[in-house]
Design a protein around this nucleic acid. Structure first.
Lengths: 348, 348
DNA sequence: ATTAGCACTGTTACTTGCGGAGTGCTAACT
DNA sequence: AGTTAGCACTCCGCAAGTAACAGTGCTAAT
């Protein structure tokens, strides 16, 4: 692919991303100040098409990028520092609000990205199984309310409360503390499965009524971790591709299917911006959409995944630039906060 | 309005709710076994129309219910015990799962309603300002992590954690306990405003660094209470009224506007099923939709509001029947659980 | 290698015509 | 007086036809 072809391909894709209309040879010459006539451009376009980078909607129409075209654009052509000064300022402002919990961080990041890119943004927290239990603490509130606090190695703290109908003694609490910590400390934050439950029950000599609800609640908390956040669902509906009711319906259904979203967000690589264009998505329901995700991490610990979903005609340059910038920013911010979290972990 | 008119009006609305097509005089005679000819029915229809209960889409079309027609149907004509045995069984099964927190109850109820009615369901928990703070407890975890537990009179427990960079002493915790309880116990769960914050700060002689984060976190927890749950957003898109892109877009935007949803859910009366048909909604964005809500309560305490949103051509009979049944069921279930909650409250 | 010119193709928007569904009204019937 | 058969009329929806037009591919000239 020579330079001129690249230049023309880039122009076609830029123009199509802007207008959502098939791009004609004439428009390219006029708008992009090419030094060739429309006929020459036409020849080049024909070649780009036969190489699979462009498509036509019908025999005499202008050109439209193919998935291969978008892929080439993302990999080779586009700029990935397409963030304006105002946007940088806005991002810094939003990310500088004091954040105590990772959930809040996820929410704020999600909304920031959605506001700047105008696409629908989705996010999940860290996968439970990547988190290591550092300590489980049982705290008695009154005499019939037991609070369970689970602390994980990435600084997350999860609490839940169990209400009993009988009094719980302080010595029972001690036993619980020892038992659960000896069994679960250092393990990943997976749900407590049947064998483990049996094992715990076999180790303790008092009533199943006390233990059962604890296990249930812990599992519920872990399950809750798989919540999916949305931001700006409505925004996509102003895009021209959503004039097709078929696609609009598909889009809503996709967002509505939590399992699909989880699978999709979890499939990306850490440390990278992941771009899936149309059929590149593993899930066939997503074949009409493009998705860009990244995991935000501190060191090698992942704290969650954030993704954008939109039409294949997505403003990749803007989206990827913003994500790159935010990803870097998050890492910096969290890196400097890290000592504080280590401190708190040291206190036991 | 005589009996025959009522019967015909009911038939028109039933038929229209089923088919989403304008109803003709002929179809009414054929399908609903009326003892009159289509001509007679035609005369009645003309009168019902001139009285405002029916509309036409064009001069020679069949009839379509007007909002006044739907209102009359809801108030006078339809059955409100339209729940099948299978549905009752299904509801009982879903609601009988053990529930520890009101949030879970809200989620389960929401999904149950959505599954049975096939409409989009939305829900919020109890409004913070209707909840009374029974007690605030500070618990030290390690030496630099402080947990704040807020218990309210409806049995809800909210926790949050604050991480400090300096050690917190047990005596400080005592002071905090006394201070916050003396100021906030018995008050509604409103955000801590500036004057109150000033006041608390003035009462205490140690560092603002300790108090500030507590107030921030408490406010954040209270704010979080205003979360809106959705279930089955995608379901509505299969309805014929959503073929109009205009309406579909509107619908998504409405759901996307949290403030609107909160306002809408909060405006209903307690102890009642509230039905808003089209223009009856206070919010003009909802004029093309119908909404049915109810607050679930125990005694005079509200625990949340659940609502259904769908097209004006909604299956009011099914929706209202299901809501009535669930509402009653919830009240019974919670009533019998109540003692348990009182117990725990007695333990301090 | 580039480009002007032109035939060709498919799209979109607009008209026209026609069958069908359903109404309103009139006149006859019970 | 209420009911109904019959019929003219209205409007919708669909299909076919037409014209303007945007854009291409190809040929032949530069």
């Amino acid at each position: 692919m020579d330079d001129r072809k690249k230049k023309i391909l880039q122009a076609v894709i830029d123009e199509y991303i802007n207008t959502a209309e098939p791009v004609s040879s004439g428009a390219l010459v006029k708008k992009y100040g090419l030094d060739y006539s429309s006929a020459t451009v036409r020849n080049e376009l024909a070649e780009l098409e036969s190489n699979g980078y462009l498509d036509k909607t019908h025999t005499s129409s202008g050109r439209v990028p193919s998935e291969k075209g978008y892929r080439f654009y993302v990999d080779e052509l586009m700029k990935d520092d397409n963030v304006s000064l105002e946007e940088i300022k806005y991002i810094q402002e939003k990310l500088s609000t004091k954040i105590n919990e990772i959930e809040d961080l996820t929410k704020i990041t999600t909304s920031t990205i959605s506001e700047i890119t105008h696409y629908t943004t989705i996010a999940i927290g860290p996968r439970p199984e990547t988190q290591i239990i550092e300590e489980i603490k049982f705290v008695l509130l009154g005499s019939r309310m037991l609070m369970v606090v689970i602390m994980t190695d990435n600084g997350l703290v999860k609490e839940t409360i169990i209400k009993y109908e009988k009094d719980i003694t302080q010595s029972q609490v001690e036993t619980l503390n020892n038992l659960f910590n000896s069994k679960l400390k250092g393990k990943p934050l997976n749900k407590i499965d049947k064998p483990m439950e049996e094992y715990i029950l076999s180790e303790i000599n008092y009533s199943i009524d006390v233990i059962k609800p604890i296990i249930e609640q812990i599992n519920k908390v872990i399950e809750q971790e798989e919540q999916v956040y949305y931001e700006g669902t409505g925004k996509s509906f102003d895009l021209p591709e959503f004039k097709s009711l078929e696609i609009a319906k598909n889009f809503v259904n996709v967002l509505d299917t939590k399992e699909l979203m989880l699978e999709m967000l979890n499939s990306g690589m850490a440390k990278d911006i992941n771009v899936y264009i149309g059929d590149e998505n593993e899930q066939k329901e997503l074949k009409d959409f493009s998705i860009v995700t990244f995991k935000h991490t501190v060191g090698d610990k992942e704290l969650g995944t954030i993704g954008i979903i939109g039409p294949k005609r997505m403003n990749y340059s803007k989206v990827i630039s913003v994500m790159k910038y935010i990803s870097k920013k998050l890492n910096n911010n969290l890196q400097t906060n890290k000592p504080e979290q280590n401190d708190t972990n040291d206190t036991k």
